[in-house]
């Protein structure tokens, strides 16, 4: 066994111990698909249902194409490796893979599409290798994933792709950063329009250090809204890339 393998084994041992010892607790929402997603999203890794991960959404989707979702894992500040979110009964369930690297709180606000009433999940991987799963339920008349694009009905929408509206709002020890990107975020489910969506985003500080990385998926609403809480002042950059290779860049003073 070489040193790398030993190291890997050493790192994984605590998890193996977890797996045997940890009781995940009771699923707080009625779900028929948890076992499937436990395998699919978390690779059957050890987890707990954890109400310290707050997943906040309205009780019903007034507009199933633009459902606000707030993921709050600040209880695990400094411990978070990544946060995965998904909507269990969506045809395309994945929402976001958010990795707060440094100087950004483990908190994210985003808007998503909902196809029908569904459990929503945010799984937070902490440095000890355990997934903490926050859950909520949302009711919906439905159809958010298959509704025709609103962006594409606006004349000249192609001209505006990649435009970013943004703002920084001081909030004491951190500052709130809000961003809205003009993009149709086509999910491939609407009348012969293929997938065309922003799949990668990165936040960097004034010294080009990475603050956070995000993989975005087509459950994210068109004209994506992203809200972060950033520690420290100075300019912040947002770099975006869509699945056609277009790159966009924004700087928030």
């Amino acid at each position: 066994m070489n040193w790398q393998a030993s190291c890997l084994l050493a790192c994984w041992l605590p998890i193996a111990a977890h797996a045997a010892a940890i009781d995940p607790g009771k699923d707080p929402v009625p779900s028929v698909m948890w076992a499937f997603y436990h395998t699919q999203m978390l690779g059957d890794a050890p987890f707990v249902f954890d109400d310290r991960v707050k997943l906040l959404a309205p009780p019903f989707a007034e507009d199933a194409r633009q459902v606000p979702l707030e993921i709050d894992a600040r209880a695990f500040k400094g411990e978070v490796v990544k946060i995965l979110a998904w909507a269990e009964l969506n045809p395309l369930p994945k929402i976001v893979d958010f990795q707060p690297v440094s100087g950004v709180l483990p908190w994210l606000s985003i808007r998503i599409r909902i196809e029908q009433a569904t459990p929503l999940r945010a799984a937070v991987l902490t440095r000890d290798g355990l997934w903490h799963v926050g859950s909520t339920l949302i009711d919906a008349a439905g159809g958010g994933c298959t509704a025709p694009s609103v962006v594409r009905t606006q004349p000249g929408w192609e001209e505006h792709i990649g435009e970013v509206l943004g703002g920084r709002y001081p909030r004491g020890e951190f500052s709130r950063l809000r961003l809205q990107v003009a993009h149709p975020m086509d999910n491939g489910m609407v009348s012969g329009i293929p997938e065309f969506f922003i799949n990668h985003a990165e936040l960097r500080d004034g010294n080009d250090q990475v603050l956070a990385r995000l993989e975005l998926f087509p459950a994210v609403s068109e004209n994506p809204n992203l809200t972060f809480d950033i520690e420290g002042a100075g300019q912040t950059r947002l770099l975006l890339r869509d699945n056609s290779g277009n790159e966009f860049d924004a700087a928030i003073p």
Binding site: R178, Q180, D249, A251
Partner: peptide, 12 residues
Amino acid sequence: YERAQMTRVDST
């Protein structure tokens, strides 16, 4: 309301 409080920040 929120759009009214944001400005263009992209470098197009």
